[in-house]
Every structure is written in C-alpha cells, then in structure tokens.
Design a protein around this nucleic acid. Structure first.
Length: 109
DNA sequence: ACTGTGACGAGGG
DNA sequence: GCCCTCGCCACAG
C-alpha cells in the first residue's frame, strides 16, 4: 500500500487476482496500474514472478491471446498445459474464445 | 549516472 | 489484411 510497492509488486498482486479459467493481457494490467504504455514492463515483471508461486503468469498473455511467454515456462508447453488444466481451450499457443475468456482488472476490480 | 533491455501495443506502409 | 517500425517506461548491469 505504501510506496514501497514497486511496479512489479503491483503486477504480481493483480495477477494473483486473476480467477481460474480466465486470462488477461499485459496491456490490460498495465492500464490498470496506470501505465498503459508500460505493457512491456508487465511482461518483464513476470520474469521475476518466477520466484513467486502465487503469481499465475500462465494466465497472462498478449493482446492476441497468444501464449507469448510460454518460452519462459521451461521451454515446453507447460504454460498451455496449465491453462488447459483450468478449462481454457488453447490451440497452437492461441487461446480459443479469448474474448470470452478475457478478464479485465479494470472492470472486474 | 548511463545504457540496454524487454513475456507489448498501436500506428503506418 | 499483413508486415514492419516506433514508442514506451521501469528495472538490471
């Protein structure tokens, strides 16, 4: 709550609020944090999220609904496996019904 | 203190 | 409609 929370910390917090079976985009989180143009920073923040277990980075994809960050999940399709385990249909790293699965923190929160 | 980077997004050709 | 380029801003080295 205080300023000691860095940009990354806020990203992690929002990610944790993503309900299962839902996904969001980096830009959506960035805008929610007030840094619409820092979408890249959101994704980059996920790099550090690897050390955290409460941050489901696999639920965060780019605005195309593509699992852009799957390369950082061990180089395998682990990210897709996690999404499918939550009921999300993924085909060729592309989330099906992405629009329906999209979870906007600005609207939901 | 400076430069580079980076899991994106939007705009232009 | 697809491909390429630019911008962007916070963190790490």
């Amino acid at each position: 709550m205080d300023s000691e929370n860095g940009f990354f910390q806020r990203v992690y917090e929002v990610c944790r609020k993503i309900p299962e079976g839902r996904v969001t985009s980096y830009g959506a989180i960035a805008r929610y944090l007030g840094a619409a143009r820092s979408a890249r920073m959101v994704g980059w923040a996920m790099n550090s999220s690897h050390s955290l277990e409460d941050v489901p980075a696999h639920r965060v994809v780019n605005r195309n609904g593509i699992l852009t960050g799957k390369h950082h999940f061990g180089g395998t399709n682990a990210m897709q496996q996690l999404l499918e385990a939550e009921g999300i249909v993924v085909k060729d790293l592309k989330i099906q019904n992405f629009k329906d699965r999209f979870w906007d923190p600005m609207k939901e929160l």
